[in-house]
Design a protein around this nucleic acid. Sequence first.
RNA 1: UGGCCCGUCGUCUAAUGGCAGGACACCGGUCUUUGGAACCGGGGGUGGUGGUUCGACUCCACCCGGGCCAACCA
Length: 771
Amino acid sequence: MDFIRSMISRDLKTGKYDGRVVTRFPPEPNGFLHIGHAKSICLNFGLAAEHDGGRCHLRLDDTNPDTEKAEFVEAMKRDIRWLGFDWEEHLYHASDYFEQLYRYALVLVDKGLAYVDSSTEEEIRERRGSVTTPGINSPYRDRSREENRDLFQRMRAGEFPDGSHVLRAKIDMAHRNMIMRDPLLYRIRHSHHYRQGDDWPIYPMYDFAHCLSDSVERVTHSLCTLEFENNREIYDWLLVHVDAPVPRPEQTEFAPLVLDYVITSKRKLKELVRTGHMRGWDDPRMPTLAGLRRRGVTPEAIRKLCDMVGVARTQSRVDFGKFEFAVRDDLNRRALRAFCVLDPVKVVLTNYPAGREEIFSAPRMPGDGGAAGTRALPFGRDIWIDREDFAETPPPGFHRLRPGGEVRLKYACTIRCDAVVKDEAGRVTELRCSFDPATRGGLAPQGRRVRGIIHWLKADRAVRAEVRLIDRMFAVPEPPPDDIVGALNPDSERIVESALVEPGVAGTPPGTHYQFERHGYFFSDPVDSGEDRLVFNRTVTMRDSWGARLRKGSPGIDGPRLSVPEGADGDDGGTVQRPLSPGETLGSDEERRRFRDLRSNGVSAAAAASLVRSPKALELFEAARARYSEGAASIAAWLVNDFTRLLGSDDRADAGRLEPVALADLVRAVDSGDLSHRQGRTVLAALLTRGGSFEEARAAADLAEIDDEGTLRTMLEGLVEEFPDKAAAFREGRTGLLGFFVGQVMRRTRGKADPKAASRLAEAILSDPGD
RNA sequence: UGGCCCGUCGUCUAAUGGCAGGACACCGGUCUUUGGAACCGGGGGUGGUGGUUCGACUCCACCCGGGCCAACCA
């Protein structure tokens, strides 16, 4: 289960949203949906489907009138449905909330939390500062609430030209998060909105509109990609300060889908379409859902890919092979088989009567037990085979036809190449072969084994088709953002105008999947294919271990490798840095002084360095040491490890509740063996959440421990009996399994066993086979 | 010279502090009328250094590496 699903289970358990799961998919209608969006769609709609009463809203995030169009909205709706998801009645537009958003903005103005800034764009930018320097306040920042309200209302009334004013939140121009430096909330834009017409001269910015739209729709889990991490702070700030109803939606970020050889920048894709490098948004080479669909990729394959990729926060790149696997895996199950000869070479079977024709039968779908039926393959004296299935001087390991060699014509018979006919240029024009009647229909009478099996077509029965050999869009896995065009794969589409297919393929309707045997999966183009014209797009090639082997044997055949930096696979000559000792990482003389002081009291270097950096912990340390002076090292260790950990992992923990005296008593009790470390930790947790003295906390905590040797031994012996293979594996050296046995003891005693005793006993019992 | 986030097989992704597992890719084998598919098997991993713990991928510290943030885009 991924981290988002875990979070939702947790929320369901705690009743945070009263059992509701409401997600949303919020694209801006300024282009086409692509494979990257597919991940988000699968996640958001998937989540809704997995929970009773779950919902996923489709919300068009249309707050920028200059880039958005109704046609994009329609394309998006079509593509989402095609992928297999449904928003039911929950179709929304951010622009439908403009009035409500405007009222929220007035709330902020009236609270003195938003102001109208009349600076120029450049002034605003300059005053924002940089990531390392604070910004400075706008001269308009201290306008009165009344003036701000008046100005903002007049902005809305359309009294001011574009760019003359903006509405900004009043937060902090020195904020460490650049986004919080008085973010813009509204800008003036006298543009026609595809949906709202000319009603609005002001438009809300993303940060303002998004969280409030989520809130208006009572979304629970607002999922977006990692690049919005920094925006989460303003998301929460706005909901709090407009007093949005609780429980409020919460934003969670996940890693976007980044696929090798693909880009998912709508801006850049748009540019490729605009400049004609791609024929349209639905060009079969495009990573858009429309392009993938036209290429023959199925919704099932895309969903499968998203499944395989998972959802996590790690920034990742997905191998293109994973995409290809998902596509083949699905198409293998659904695509009917047929023969297709891309680059024909004539074969004349000299011992076959001219003018005679016989029909061989072949399965439409091998391995399905005949469920899909058979197809008829006419056979005769003149046939076509693919040029690459013959080699006059074959490379080592080549299995197909060669002079004097034999090959099987799939589903027909074996043939032997007797003579090669060439034109003046030396190009092979015809192969004169003889067929073996005894091998008809797949028989191999003499036990003779023919390695090569190739596809073929009877010359006068083959049907013409245009085949577009689609390949990956880019020549390199990571196209450089500043030179997308230069990275395009020059062979991303090779058009074979007159390929030949078997007669049964004639009349194939547009939108049909085929596997052209040994070539790959193909899809009759939904646009260009028609009754009298066959056009096929190659969706994906077959897995090709022969081609891979050839490429491996001769580097360079693989094409350019622009992405590999010079010397990347060699020694970069860098020097290995010596790790710094803890004391060396300290910044100031004062810190170093305290560090030496702590060291002289027996505190470990690592603990001392940590303590010095944390004034609060250091204060506690000094106070506790005053009561238990010989325990300096232990107190420091407790503070640096267990104390810090509890504070970080438990929301209820508060350092302020921990009395130094209680801490000192606790550490002393553990040092003296009065309490195990584990029990000490339990008491510390209680002290941090409830406060009080050590004795009180100790009395209140459930510290019962099973350390009775007999009980533990019985339990462990039972485990060894129950898991004899694991016990044996341990004796053979898999010492990690000790953890398994101790873990089982801990689990079965619901954490009550003394792990130290259990561990010691387990080791003794396991190492000694006994009988 | 800041803040936030992220580092697990080649790649993607799991593991309430308790057996480092799965998938793709790769290699080998069986079978085979697709150099395909199916099936079986194999190699390969916790960025580094310390610390805490009976036990660390998991907690703590530091280091290293990567990503995001300074549009009146989203």
